[in-house]
Design a protein around this nucleic acid. Structure first.
Lengths: 217, 217, 217, 217
DNA sequence: AATGAATGAGCATTCATTCAT
DNA sequence: TATGAATGAATGCTCATTCAT
């Protein structure tokens, strides 16, 4: 599977400039979507010439895919840390919620991008990049649930795949709700203007919701 | 609050033509996204001149907003039917799941559009239209939960707003997963290729998940 | 075989505008070659918007092919008139020389275009359009030569195809020499600055050359 | 008259590298034409940096002119050898035909370039380089014809300049017909698919054509 | 009211040329 | 002297919007 959508030249660029380009692109794509994103604009924000952009990426699409790839990598790192620890399922879930709260604030634009990207038009282009991560997540969650079932912590009559799916759905919506304007507004309607300052309450309630769904009480 | 984004002339048009225009627009916007959607294309699919389109809508945006409005109305109707019935919370939830399964198949394009619309770029334009419905939904769900709490069916230590939010999150993701390519593929990874033919299993598992979260067992 | 490289809309345009567009395009392509020719420039010379140009022609290439087609048609008309008359081979040849002298002056740009077009890069695109005419010419010349051979006017030991080829070569170079700067300069070196004013001498000498080659004397 | 269009630095370059550059440039210009030819491409094919190319040539045009100059020089050598021999006009012509058959195959790209170069757009730039050779050729042919007239071999009523012109026209078209796709296809229409394998027949027929035109029989 | 031809600003992409190293 | 990364003007093409009929 191809993993690099940029050209050799992009590797040779100084890390500082590379980051400026990636950042500018993330913001532009996140704010305007693929079609409306303007390469010339990205270039000028990044302090780079258009010509250079095309030395680094063959097409607008390649820049987009590079960004997506970068986003997935960043997410993988976050997830990887949580996975590494040997803890029980409920602790893991609590840690993931915390990570989402941190990540979706630090990386607002990447999160917006994830929303953007899941949008119909370009999805097939992007799926091959993201599917790997979705696969990993799905596999992991399912595995943890089965493990917990074996330990007698999770009810034996739940289908692990389905429950992993519902769990991840809750996580995705949480991410979007912290980062994307539309979902943020919507969340405020349900919970109130100050949700964003009440991370602990969110964690508490969501844990209660999930634990109720999963665990014997 | 402004509710009509079309011009007077659009009212005078025959219902048949009005529907052809709306349908063509829904498909175009859902398939290509706002920016890539082509007004001239919509006009020709609808069998109407571009000139007429601009007699009906001042801007591309206005057509988009009209479509969104129409989508929200359609959804309201579906929801309204469920709300009308006097049944217990869990029955209601099960009915909603069924409605989502039906609606997201019948109205694939409207569902895609909802995903599209929540995307950063256009969200502020759109929020004023959709917020009304989101408000209604949020209020309704919250009300039902409180009611169930009063009846002692739902645990008293859950915050109704939060739980309504989680519930709706699960619903939204279910919709997307049935209608939008990206989320469809993702769901298959979690559950398997044949999810789409196993609506009952989905309902059963999701009910189990939600009931665990909500109810005393 | 496809013969129209323009879109329906180009047919609906007033003849005056159509001619302005064709003329502007002929000049631009003849003067700058395919690559350097500028569509925006053609549009502005023709007094038409770029947008319209693309309503008439899908691609720059299609405009080019339309022009070539037009040139071939013009040439066919000229040739057709000469062919129509029932005269002996030498009279025919003399008439063709005269026609070349007239045509290459009236239609300098079309002649330049023919030179341009025969240039390597785009030749395959163009060949299908021009080949038909080349085929007609080749067949015609060969037929006339055979006929003259049958009548005992032309030597029986000449291969009609080859001689038709040499004859047409002389004609092509004569065209270019009257219309294209490079070949014009070159001709002046051979014959003198005032060749262009001595059409009769050219005709006389070329007839002498060709008749010597072809006929029993 | 300026004869060098390259900079001093190009002289100091090793012969091997110089030839690689010239060869790469000949191919690129011949295949793509002046406008589409890509300096960066030529540099990379020649194994030289773009920077160096601009140390050797001030402009794309200068590289082009250098190539033309080189082509003319090559042609001069070929012609020079034929001129050196003391033989009768008809033998000379036969030798030239043979030389064209060889040269246009060995140096396809240079021949294509000659065709390219005669194209309107660049002609004035190029004329000063080529005119010298055209002058030589014209002078030579004319001289030979006059000489043959003096010897009573060629008819006295032909104008040597005109006949030299016609002769050279036949030669030029023969060159193009062996090297350039368009003219090659055209020749096949007149003579047949296997012309390219029948050099002797071509020579025989062309000699017959020319001798008929020139000589008392 | 309806039409659909016309407009032209806007953007992706290319490539000759420069210049810091 | 050589390099090759960087530049940015230039151009083909699209499409929302206008307006004469």
């Amino acid at each position: 599977m191809k993993t690099d959508y940029f050209k050799e030249a992009f590797n040779k660029v100084s890390e500082e400039k590379r980051n400026k380009i990636l950042d500018a692109a993330i913001v532009e794509f996140a704010e305007h979507g693929f079609e409306s994103a303007n390469i010339n604009s990205i270039a000028s924000v990044a302090g780079v010439s258009v010509g250079s952009m095309y030395k680094y990426f063959d097409h607008k699409e390649d820049l987009f895919l590079t960004i997506i790839h970068y986003g997935v990598d960043t997410l993988k790192t976050v997830l990887g840390e949580i996975v590494a620890e040997k803890v029980s399922l409920d602790v893991r879930i609590e840690k993931i919620i915390g990570a989402i709260q941190r990540y979706s604030r630090e990386q607002v634009h990447l999160t917006k991008l994830y929303n953007e990207m899941a949008t119909e038009s370009r999805s097939s282009l992007v799926w091959k990049i993201v599917s790997e991560m979705e696969n990993a997540t799905a596999g992991l969650y399912t595995y943890y649930i089965k493990e917990a079932q074996a330990k007698g912590q999770v009810r034996s009559d739940v289908n692990p795949g389905y429950f992993a799916f519902f769990l991840d759905n809750l996580f995705i919506m949480l991410q979007f709700s912290y980062a994307c304007e539309y979902y943020k507004d919507r969340m405020k309607i349900f919970i109130g203007e100050d949700v964003l300052e009440q991370d602990d309450l969110m964690t508490e309630q969501l844990m209660k919701f999930i634990k109720g769904a999963f665990f014997y009480q």
